[in-house]
C-alpha cells in the first residue's frame, strides 16, 4: 500500500492540485483537508459532543426549573431507568444519557477507526485500534466488577 492509499493519509501526500480551503488556517502541508476516515471521525466526534451538550442543557434546565440544585446529589447510574426517565421527561434521564454519550463517543471513534483500517488492509493500525477497544472493555469490566 502506498502512503496516499492510507485511509488517513496526510493531505501533503496527495497531488498538489487538490483543492484547498481559502481563509482556513491549516498546517502548511495539510491544506487539502482531511481524508475519508478523518472526516467520518470528525463528524462522529462533533455529533457526539453536541448531542451530549444539548442533553446536558435540557437536563440542567429541567433540574433548575424544578427548583433543584446541582448540589442536591444526583442518583447513581441505573442504566435500566434511563429510558423510563427520558420517557417521563425527567432531568435524570437527560443528564445520564448525556454522560453515557460523552463517555461512549471516544470508544465509538476507535471502533470506526478499526473498521476503516481493516477495510483499507492496514492490519497494524487495525490491531492498535482493537487493542485500545480491548483496554476500554477491560476498564468497563473492572469498573462493574469493583462497583462500590
Amino acid at each position: 500500500m502506498t502512503t496516499s492509499d492510507r485511509p488517513d493519509a496526510a493531505a501533503g501526500d496527495r497531488p498538489a492540485d487538490s483543492p484547498s480551503t481559502p481563509g482556513v488556517e491549516t498546517a502548511p502541508a495539510a491544506r487539502d483537508g482531511a481524508t475519508g476516515l478523518e472526516q467520518t471521525i470528525a463528524r462522529l466526534l462533533t455529533i457526539g459532543t453536541y448531542a451530549a451538550v444539548a442533553l446536558f442543557a435540557i437536563g440542567s434546565g429541567l433540574l433548575l426549573a424544578a427548583g433543584g440544585s446541582p448540589l442536591d446529589g444526583g442518583p447513581r447510574l441505573d442504566i435500566g431507568r434511563v429510558g423510563a426517565d427520558l420517557g417521563e421527561l425527567r432531568f435524570d434521564g437527560f443528564l445520564w444519557l448525556g454522560l453515557l454519550i460523552v463517555i461512549a463517543t471516544p470508544a465509538a471513534r476507535v471502533g470506526v477507526s478499526f473498521i476503516g483500517y481493516l477495510r483499507a488492509g492496514e492490519r497494524s493500525m487495525a490491531l492498535v485500534a482493537a487493542l485500545i477497544l480491548g483496554i476500554i472493555s477491560l476498564s468497563v469490566a473492572l469498573a462493574i466488577g469493583t462497583e462500590g
Partner: peptide
C-alpha cells in the same frame, strides 16, 4: 467509566 460505576460522577454537577 471507573469513576462512573464507583458513583463518583454526579450528573447534576457534571451537566452545568
Amino acid at each position: 467509566v471507573i469513576y462512573l460505576f464507583r458513583g463518583e460522577i454526579d450528573p447534576y454537577v457534571a451537566g452545568p
